[in-house]
Design a protein around this nucleic acid. Structure first.
Length: 894
RNA sequence: GCCCCUAUGGCGGAACUGGUAGACGCGUCCGACUCAAAAUCGGAUUCCGCAAGGAGUGCUGGUUCGAUUCCGGCUAGGGGCACCA
């Protein structure tokens, strides 16, 4: 079969006149992929003088096989790459592997395979899958982050960052599994229990490495404004993540008889100091120093704190957990009233890492505080009321008032607006001193926390540090990099294999030579992906992470002109990469680039219907769907048992609603898969994978081939020329309009619209090409069609590159269509001389008016008023108003 | 809990900057070709109505000559929340 179709394809290629056979992607696609590779068509020369364009899709994690999300992502990026290449750019379009991570360790543990072997086997599989997609990638630049040749440079940069003060070692909380004696990832904690042991997870403090991303908070926030080719949504998410707030640090004196030994004040950060007279309690984190001291001789409080520590560490868990508190017995004194004391509670919703780990609660102005106050019987004093409400009767019981308004019950603040009251409180408290410091200071606070990069895992980039009892933490000398992962590791024991490896961690201190220990933590895999885009610009440099002459600046590649990937990376990966760009500049690994990604596009997911059979979820391949009288019913192919059609959801193994790209590539070919991924939905939105949709795309592939191949034999030797009248003019107008619009759509990444234009174009071409195939066309129509078909080949090439080559060859085109220039359109052919105006009467369409494009407003109005429908509607009366929007619409107000 | 996004025919979606709602595709129906089927080609397809006409972009109120588009309030669905990548 394969041999026959291969032969057929060669014949078709050689004798396009015979080409009425169906297009066979199984023969064509490998042929063209081989031809491109042999011509090194997509290998990029850093020295090529053409203007540079860097298009990058987020590199994949080598999970084993590519999935439809990859197909969509890479199909989009390839359209951009091929389009830019056709427009004269020197395009960089590389591919690599985000190859470190937890799944390799899970596979190692579950299947007794070596993580390295597992990963490289997956890479080999996925590379060959991607190659069958026909992507215009420069494979010569391929990198894998798990390769010592990559992470060696990452270790160097870690040490450079450290020297520049961008690295810090401090304590942080982790999810600790007390049975497996190991640190758990958030996804390994299910309902507060370890995923394997089932033991309740504890919070534990561990000394870990951090990148000081917070030192750049303000710049990371401000620079979002310069990213005008980023989705607003992503910028907003980042801004919220950074979370800048302006507030007041208030030092509340402790009531002396209640204060623990050595404590005299409680520091609280608040953005609402205006509500200070509505305060009714203080809430502190479980790790707060005051909480610890108070718990020392209060077993009940100690038990409560212990209970909090068994909760999750993620914000979502903390915020959704029931709000609980425990009175420490400590009291603070109100800054404006020495006779007023407030209780200090330990509360499970206060985070130690944010602000000072302590808040004051104003129940009337915050729903969470109100719920807390109601639960523990604390006073609720309204301090802000809506403008115009009655201060004497305004009450808060179940719903807090959080909007703007007027201050009440607040002594000297009464009648002020909250912003004014904020300033008055800030100024007054600043003037009071407590323990030689002002009682309050204005403070800008960020929600952003430092980037915790330590992971107690094996399959990651080792942190190149040696801990010596005498010298402290010492960097591994540069000439000893990379610190390589040991090959012989076992996953039989829980915990970090690096830590219990018999020899790996034992080294001598590079400074004093005495026995010392390697750091056994590895880096967060987000570190790996925070600079790979820079490495692609010169992956051959063995001495340095980057080559300054090509990485950025005048003749360099960065920033990435178009970055494409999933919305799930909107915050962390993109923010970390922005941090890395700044840090690499500080440490001399970049010249001048301010932001790594000039243009960002976040694509939607690939989703699919779910099916549930008698024994749980079943795959699309196991069922049959029939439609009777508008109702779709599904049954098992095996035994005809009924299957419930469930919701459309993200493709996932657990729901079994996964379609394997290999199957699609094998049966329909890469062009069909790519075209469908681009055609149905706007790229930023989810696309629903349907068999019918794929078949539709496949029909179009065949249809294009039929149109080109049938007309092709009559167009040999015909010189392309635009038509000037009749059918030839119609064809040329459609062709030139399509060239213009498809180009505009691709530049906007509106691939689904570009696809629709191509369909329209094919619809216009079809009758004319049928005439040509039947030998009924005159020479001007043949010339116009020849031109139109040549244009069509170049237009479809970014989306369906193999089909485009085959069509190009059938027309007798030179070289590859992949190396052709994007066609130029004649602007005169893209505008019509006549305009059809919709004529509205009182905003409803009642007729149409066809008139010359250059007709002036008065002429349009006159012609519109002469229409029967208008005369009838006006019934002899003069119109009240006539609105003529040039080239658009006429609205007559009767 | 907090933050963000989305909502248009039977379905995916289009509509430029406030200007003909439903481009294009899928599905369905009718016809041609065929002994027949598939494929292909031609036509119809928002809803109600024989028609004239009327209604219509999640619901609701507003601004406007004119609102899918702008503003206010609501409803439903989806995504993210720092050790998955």
């Amino acid at each position: 079969m394969a041999a026959t179709s291969g032969l057929m394809s060669v014949l078709l290629c050689k004798f396009p006149a015979m080409a009425t056979e169906r297009y066979n992607p199984r023969a064509s696609e490998p042929k063209w992929q081989k031809a491109w590779a042999e011509a090194k068509l997509f290998e990029t020369d850093n020295k090529n003088p053409r203007p540079k364009y860097y298009v990058l899709e987020m590199f994949p994690y080598p999970s084993g096989r590519i999935h439809m999300g990859h197909v969509r992502n890479y199909a989009m990026g390839d359209v951009v790459a091929r389009y830019r290449r056709a427009n004269g750019f020197n395009v960089l379009h590389p591919m690599g592997w985000d190859a470190f991570g937890l799944p390799a360790e899970n596979a190692a543990r579950d299947n007794k395979v070596n993580p390295r072997d597992w990963t490289y086997a997956n890479i080999a599989t996925m590379r060959s899958q991607l190659k069958t997609m026909g992507l215009s990638l420069d494979w010569a630049r391929e990198i894998a982050t798990c390769d010592p040749s990559y992470y060696k440079h990452q270790q160097k940069m870690f040490l450079d960052f450290w020297k520049s003060g961008l690295v810090e070692r401090k304590s942080a909380k982790v999810n600790w599994d007390p049975v497996d004696m190991t640190v758990l990832a958030n996804e390994q904690v299910i309902d507060g229990k370890g995923w394997r042991s089932g033991a309740p997870v504890e919070q534990r403090d561990l000394t870990q490495w951090f990148f000081k991303i917070t030192s750049m908070s303000q710049d990371l926030l401000d620079s979002l404004d310069t990213l005008d080719r980023w989705p607003e949504k992503v910028k907003l998410m980042q801004a919220n993540w950074i979370g800048r707030s302006e507030g007041l640090l208030i030092r509340w004196p402790l009531a002396k008889d209640t204060a623990p030994q050595g404590e005299s004040e409680l520091e609280v950060y608040t953005t609402r100091p205006d509500t200070i007279f509505g305060a009714s309690f203080m809430a502190i984190a479980a790790d707060h120093a005051l909480a610890r001291k108070a718990a020392a001789n209060n077993p009940a409080l100690a038990a409560f704190i212990d209970e909090i520590k068994h909760g999750g560490t993620s914000v979502a868990e903390i915020e959704t957990a029931e709000k609980k508190g425990f009175d420490t017995g400590i009291r603070v004194v109100h800054p404006f009233d020495p006779s007023w004391t407030l209780p200090v509670y330990v509360a499970n919703f206060v985070l130690m890492d944010y602000g000072t780990g302590a808040i004051f609660g104003c129940p009337s102005g915050d729903q969470r505080d109100l719920d807390f106050a109601n639960k523990y019987g604390l006073p609720v004093v309204p301090v802000v009321m809506p403008e115009g409400a009655d201060a004497a009767s305004f009450q808060i019981t179940e719903t807090a008032y959080t909007d703007d308004g007027v201050m009440i019950n607040s002594r000297f603040l009464d009648g002020m607006k909250p912003t004014e009251a904020f300033n008055v409180v800030a100024d007054r408290l600043a003037a009071i001193s407590i323990g030689n410091r002002p009682m309050a200071e204005r403070k800008v606070q960020f929600r952003l926390r430092d980037w915790l990069i330590s992971r107690q895992r094996y399959w990651g980039c080792p942190i190149p540090v040696i801990h010596c009892d005498h010298c402290g933490s010492i960097p591994v000398p540069t000439n000893q990099l990379p610190v390589e992962l040991p090959q012989d590791v076992s996953f039989d024991k829980p915990g970090n294999p690096l830590d219990h490896h018999p020899t790996w961690k034992h080294v001598n201190c590079p400074q004093c030579g005495k026995p010392a220990r390697r750091d056994t933590d590895t880096m967060d895999t987000f570190v790996d992906s925070s600079w790979y885009f820079a490495r692609f610009t010169d992956p051959w440099n063995e001495a340095e992470p980057t080559t300054l002459s090509v990485v950025d600046g005048k003749n360099g590649w960065l920033p990435v002109n178009q970055y494409i990937g999933g919305i799930e990376h909107a915050i962390l990966h993109l923010l970390y990469s922005r941090f890395f760009t700044r840090a690499m500049k500080v440490t001399g690994h970049l010249n001048e680039v301010a932001e790594p990604f000039e243009g960002l596009f976040t694509q939607g997911m690939v989703v699919h219907e779910t099916y549930r059979g008698p024994n749980g979820w079943v795959t699309p391949a196991e069922i049959k769907i029939e439609e009777t009288e508008g109702t779709r019913r599904a049954t098992m192919l095996s035994d005809g048992a009924p299957v419930e059609i469930g919701a459309i959801e993200k493709m996932s193994k657990s729901k079994k609603n996964v379609v394997d790209p290999d199957d699609i590539l094998a049966s329909y070919g890469a062009d069909t898969a790519r075209f469908f991924m681009l055609s149905d939905s706007p790229p930023e939105r989810d696309v629903i994978w349907t068999e019918a949709g794929v078949e539709g795309a496949h029909r179009f592939v065949q249809r294009i081939w039929r149109l080109v191949s049938e007309a092709g034999e009559h167009l040999q030797g015909v010189a392309p020329a635009s038509g000037t009248e009749g059918d030839a003019l119609t064809i040329s107008k459609a062709a030139h309009k399509t060239v213009k619009l498809v180009g505009e759509d691709i530049e906007k990444l509106a691939f689904n619209k570009a696809v629709a234009r191509l369909y329209e174009f094919a619809n216009v071409l079809q009758p004319a090409l049928a005439d040509i195939a039947a030998g009924k066309a005159d020479s001007t129509l043949r010339a116009a069609c020849r031109q139109a078909l040549e244009m069509l080949c170049v237009l479809i090439a970014p989306m369906m590159p193999h089909l485009a080559e085959e069509c190009w060859a059938a027309l007798g085109g030179e070289e590859f269509v992949a190396s052709q220039s994007w066609p130029a359109f004649d602007p005169a052919l893209t505008v019509d001389n006549e305009i059809v105006y919709p004529i509205q009467i009182n905003g409803k369409k009642r007729g149409e008016l066809t008139i010359a494009r250059d007709a002036d407003q008065a002429a349009v109005e006159k012609a519109a008023l002469a229409l029967d429908a208008v005369i009838k509607a006006l019934d002899g009366k003069p119109p009240r108003k006539v609105i003529v929007v040039p080239q658009r619409i006429v609205n007559v107000v009767a």
